[in-house]
Design a binder for these strands. Structure first.
Lengths: 172, 172
DNA sequence: AGTGAAAACCGTAGCGT
DNA sequence: ACGCTACGGTTTTCACT
């Protein structure tokens, strides 16, 4: 794993855009202590080099009628590499699966599934999940209350570079 | 739970903004078949009424040096309401915890924790998690491969309204 | 690398439909 | 409710430091 090529200003940019993805370039330049042109160049570089994957409106699940989130633990039937791969692809391809990870522990995969209600989850389970041949075992963990989700990533581990900047933390 | 007050155009707007949060209002208006003014009015309404929670740059975890994601299953020590509440607040307050849910099943909470590496997780665990008095049991599930994450929400369950629109699906 | 200016573009409000 | 027009601000490029 190569090391990271970000200075203190890049970090500020990432942090600011993570907090508000619709910041205008002018506002952003202001916050990071740069004039608009070099600021824009940096943003484009961060986009091109894959630091910024995309920009997204974060929707409220309940408001748009998605009242049920389920964490599904899945075990692969026969632990072949092909089965695991096929399962991962099948899960990732489903729009209801908003996240899917291969994990250590008792399960092989954890999928986060978002649906309108229990009825919809029942259909999802019986029609799309249980019909997958490579599935060995499924355990559904229903979300009772969502305390936190879609939170920004913690970027403080990069802060070692920030000491180089003599600007006040919040000059807005 | 009240019903949803979104027509086919609102749905298109949400869907488009979920796919690209930096769409200009002009581009958006174009895609949904509206002129800019009513389009902007709708977006503002969707923001005000809480359908759109925020806009965010989605960063690449590996690129910014966050190589390790862990799903932590946590049981509350004594199953009192206060303990559960205190634990939930403590977890939600940690920046490394990017998601935290109370769930049914064997665990009480599932927290998604993002850190640079194993060493950082060890410190997180010993210094911040295990020192919480209301924790009964912890099981750490390390993410081996991330197949999908930060995906857009599935909005197809609202598509019943879309039949009213006679525009081609993709006229860009 | 960063700065500053100029042109094209966009967001927004107001009025008319 | 949608659409048009117009003004002010923003994005973006380009030449210069």
């Amino acid at each position: 794993m190569p090391y990271i090529n970000l200075d203190a200003i890049d970090l500020k940019i990432l942090s600011a855009l993570q907090g508000d993805g619709r910041l205008t370039n002018n506002e952003l330049a202001d916050q990071v202590g740069l004039s608009p042109s070099p600021c824009l160049r940096r943003v484009r570089r961060l986009e091109r080099d894959g630091f910024i994957r995309t920009y997204r409106a974060v929707l409220d699940r309940e408001s748009v009628g998605l009242g049920l989130t389920v964490f599904v633990e899945i075990k692969v039937e026969k632990h072949s590499r092909d089965n695991a791969r096929a399962l991962q692809d099948a899960l990732s391809g489903m729009p209801e699966v908003v996240a899917c990870h291969m994990v250590s522990g008792t399960a092989d995969f954890v999928a986060e599934i978002v649906v309108p209600n229990l009825k919809a989850y029942e259909r999802m389970l019986t029609e799309k999940l249980l019909t997958l041949p490579m599935i060995g075992d499924i355990r559904s963990n229903f979300v009772l209350t969502r305390a936190k989700s879609d939170a920004p990533l913690p970027l403080s581990h990069l802060k070692r570079d920030v000491r180089a900047v003599g600007v006040a933390p919040d000059c807005e």
